[in-house]
Every structure is written in C-alpha cells, then in structure tokens.
C-alpha cells in the first residue's frame, strides 16, 4: 500500500497504538484519528472505552437504522453500549478522567515537544474550537498517547523542541505514534523506538525538529 495514503496511515497508527493496550484497561479515545484504535484491539483481551459525554463501556457504531438519538459519543456520533456498560453524569465522567482512573488516553495533536508538552486546541488568529475535555484528559490519564501525522500538510515537523502554539498540558505526553515512527519522551528528548515500514532513520531525522535519542535496536512496524 502507498505509505502516503490517508487510510493506510490511519490503520498503521491505530493498529500500533492498540498494541499498547492490556486486558481490562479503561481507555478514552479522542475524536478523529484516535478512534481507529478501537478497530484493532488484540485478540483475547477486553478493553473498556469511556466517552466523556457520559458512558463507560462504548460499543461499536449501530447498524444503519438502529441509531438511538440518546446514544452518542463525545464527537456526536451514534454508538451502542456493551454489556456491562454504565451511564454517568459529566462530573462523574471527569472525576474518572481527572482522578487518574483511566489507564490510557489517545489524542490527536497539532504539535508535541520533547518536554512532553502538547498543543491541540487553538491556533491563534484562526479557529478556536475550544479544548472540550482534552485538558482534563491529558492532566489525569495514567498514560497519554498522541496519535498524529508526523508532519503537517506543508511538510513541517509537528514534533518540536518547543511547542509554539498555546499548550493543552505541560509535560504529560508519554508516547507518540505517527505515520513514520513510534517515540517516547525520555530525559527531555524523544527516544526513537520503532520506524514505520518504508522509512529510514535518516527520513525520521529529517522529518523531526526535536532532539532524538537513536541507539540500540530500532524495530519496524507496519499494518500487518
């Protein structure tokens, strides 16, 4: 498949992040790219998804015609509930989020930097959608994973020494999975863990503005 294809990138990133999940995890997936993770849960494990508008235990999207107007996720999309799910109010939902009870949150980002800072809610001078639940999610989840394309549509690195956009949270990001690489924050740098099939270490260095730690074995990851 073409490594520049949008759907390919989505599956690549979603599938790789799904490998971070453990049996019994409670997870919140952000709107957009992060939702792809739910399609790749490894066989043999159960993962419980929260949607912060008010449900623990989100199930798959309903079949066409079975949509329930009172069953939506935080993106406004129709959902079902799994057996054993629970409906919660917004204060309870954010107590779960802020209180450190979620094992993982997966969010998109405009920029991430090597101090673990994240920017994903505001481009000054342009649109201000608001942060919704993102600031609480990154503040409270045990593990913060960023799912995004490595570079913006103009080819500029989104992985920086220092974010230039207004921050969502300071020092909270643990892991980044892009269409090119898997990297974790370590000692105020990004340690390169894995490279997507079709790319070289040189490609990653060229596409990354942040300081990288490149040492030891670096594996490949792909869609298969």
């Amino acid at each position: 498949m073409d490594k520049n294809d949008k759907d390919y990138k989505k599956i690549l990133i979603g599938k790789r992040i799904a490998k971070e999940l453990s049996d019994g995890d409670f997870v919140n997936l952000g709107i957009g790219l992060p939702t792809e993770v739910a399609n790749h849960i490894p066989k043999g494990i159960n993962v419980y998804f929260q949607s912060e508008n008010g449900i623990m235990g989100v199930g798959p999207a309903p079949n066409s015609g079975d949509e329930d107007p009172e069953m939506i996720n935080a993106g406004g999309g129709f959902i079902t509930a799994i057996s054993g799910s629970a409906f919660i109010d917004s204060a309870m939902s954010f107590a779960i989020i802020r209180g450190g009870h979620l094992d993982m949150t997966v969010l998109g980002a405009l920029q991430v930097d090597q101090k673990g800072n994240l920017a994903n809610w505001w481009i000054p001078g342009k649109f201000v959608p608001g942060m919704g639940g993102a600031m609480d999610l990154v503040s409270g989840a045990k593990k913060v994973v960023v799912a995004m394309e490595h570079c913006d549509k103009n080819g500029n690195s989104k992985i920086l020494q220092e974010c230039t956009l207004p921050l969502t949270a300071v020092g909270k990001v643990n892991l980044i999975v892009t269409d090119m690489a898997v990297m974790k924050i370590e000692k105020d740098k990004f340690r390169l863990l894995e490279i997507a099939e079709g790319y070289t270490i040189d490609d990653i260095q060229k596409a990354t503005e942040a300081d990288l730690i490149i040492e030891g074995e670096i594996k490949n990851f792909g869609v298969n």
């Binding site: 800072n117 609480d136 921050l167 949270a169 300071v170």
Partner: peptide, 29 residues
Amino acid sequence: IVPQGTLMERIRAKGAGLGGILTPTGVGT
C-alpha cells in the same frame, strides 16, 4: 473557554455551597 471537567466542577461547586475548586487541569497553560 473553560475545560469541560473544570466547567462541571465549577457549576457543581455552586450547588454544593463551595467557593470553588482546586484543579490541576490547565496548569502551565
């Protein structure tokens, strides 16, 4: 613009007779 969890707790605080809440959400932003 108020983070969603903060918004809920600020509203809840009023109803619960509290002057406000202390939250880590938004520190450094």
